[in-house]
Design a protein around this nucleic acid. Structure first.
Lengths: 192, 192
DNA sequence: TGTGTTTTGTAATAATCGATACAAAACTAC
DNA sequence: GTAGTTTTGTATCGATTATTACAAAACACA
C-alpha cells in the first residue's frame, strides 16, 4: 500500500560500485552517483544511507563476488599450481581488459583510505586474513597431494602469494605489456 | 629589489608531499595544504602553480628521493641477494614504522589516478620502467658473479621483483604483523 | 473511488571547493 | 629616503560539496 520503487536496488548498488571503483571515494560526488545510478539524491539517501555507507556496501558486494570467484576456482579438481596460475592470470587479464583500467577496488580503497578510516581498515584486514587462509588451505592441499614440498610453510607461501596478488593488480593498471606480466608468473610459481 | 619570501620553497614542497601522500589528491584540499605548509593561498599559487601542478611536483620529488635511496643500495659491494633483501626489508620497515601508515606515494597515486590522469599515467609508466631496469641490472650483476643462475631471464625476474615491491607496500599498510611480511621474503628470494 | 503510504522531483540548505583581486606590507637598489 | 618590485594578508569569487524539506505523484488496499 505504497508507491513502489522505480529502480532496482541491486542494480543501483552495482552502478555505485562501478563509479567508486573508477574514481575512488573522495573523487566520487553524490552527483556522479545519482547520474550513474539514474536516481535522485533523496532516493539514494533513503535507500542506501549516506555516501560513506553506500561506499562500504558497494565494497562489501565487490568482495563477495571476489570471494565467490576465488572459492570456485580453488575448489576445482585441478593441480594446485594450475589453479594458482589461473587465479593470477585471470587477475592480469581482467585488469588489462577493463577499458577503464580500474585495477582492484579493494587495493584502491586500501591505498586511499585504510590509514584514515577505521571501518575500511578493518574490512581490509579481514579481507587479507580471508584470502590468506584460502590460499594457505590451497597450499596445504598441494602438500597433501605431493605437488608442493611438504617442508615448506603453507602460511608463509600464502602471504607470499597474497603479496603477488596485490602487486599484480597495481601494476596491471599501468603496464599494458601482457608478456611482461605473464612472464613473471613463472617466477611466482617457481617459489612454491 | 623586491619583498623576499617568508617561507622555504623546498620545505613547503616537502610539507605538501606529506599531505598528498597521506590523503591523496582528491582527498586533499587547498586549505589542508595552506595549513600544513603555513602559507596562504596566493603564495601557494604564485610559487607552485595550481593544485595539480603542485601535486605532480611533489610526486616527482618523492620519486627522486626513492631513486636516490635505491641507487645507493644497489651500488653497494654486497651479495645481490643481500641487497634485494635489504630493499624489501626496508620497504616493509619504513611502511610499518610510519605512524600514519601512508604506504607508497607512487602506489597510492597509481591506484587513485593513473586511469584518469594521463600525466600521472605517464609518470607511473616511466617509474616502472626505471625501477625494472635498475632491478634487471642488479640481477645481471648477480648472474655475472654467479650468485644468480645464468639461464634465468633477468628482465623477467625484475618484473617479478617489481610486483613484489608494489605488493609489499600495499599490504604493509594494513598488516602490522612484521613476521608474516618478513617470512614472505624467503619465498621471494627463493625465486631468484 | 477514496485513503494511506512511500517514492519521486524540485529546490534549497550551509559549508567547502579551487582559485583570484586588491591593497597593504616588506624588502632591494639607488 | 624614495622608487620599484614582489610577497603577503584579507576577503571574495562562482561553483560544487553532501545532505535534506517539502510537496506532488504513484501505487496498494479498502
Amino acid at each position: 500500500m505504497a508507491r513502489p520503487k522505480k529502480f532496482d536496488e541491486a542494480a543501483g548498488l552495482q552502478k555505485a560500485m562501478d563509479v567508486f571503483w573508477k574514481k575512488g571515494y573522495a573523487g566520487t560526488s553524490i552527483s556522479d552517483l545519482t547520474t550513474s545510478m539514474e536516481i535522485n539524491a533523496p532516493s539514494l539517501y533513503a535507500t542506501y544511507g549516506d555516501k560513506h555507507k553506500l561506499f562500504v556496501t558497494a565494497l562489501q558486494a565487490y568482495l563477495q563476488s571476489q570471494y565467490e570467484w576465488m572459492r570456485q576456482a580453488v575448489s576445482e579438481q585441478k593441480p594446485v599450481r594450475e589453479i594458482i596460475r589461473y587465479l593470477l592470470a585471470t587477475l592480469i587479464d581482467s585488469t588489462l581488459e577493463d577499458p577503464e583500467r580500474r585495477g582492484c577496488f579493494m587495493v584502491n580503497t586500501i591505498t586511499e583510505m585504510a590509514n584514515q578510516d577505521t571501518q575500511v581498515f578493518r574490512i581490509a584486514a579481514d579481507n587479507e586474513n580471508h584470502i590468506r587462509s584460502v590460499l594457505a588451505e590451497l597450499i596445504r592441499k598441494g602438500q597433501a597431494s605431493g605437488e608442493v614440498a611438504a617442508d615448506k610453510d603453507a602460511d608463509m607461501l600464502a602471504s607470499f602469494l597474497y603479496i603477488n596478488f596485490m602487486g599484480v593488480r597495481v601494476i596491471a593498471a599501468t603496464n599494458s605489456d601482457k608478456k611482461h606480466l605473464y612472464s613473471a608468473l613463472d617466477a611466482i610459481l617457481s617459489a612454491i
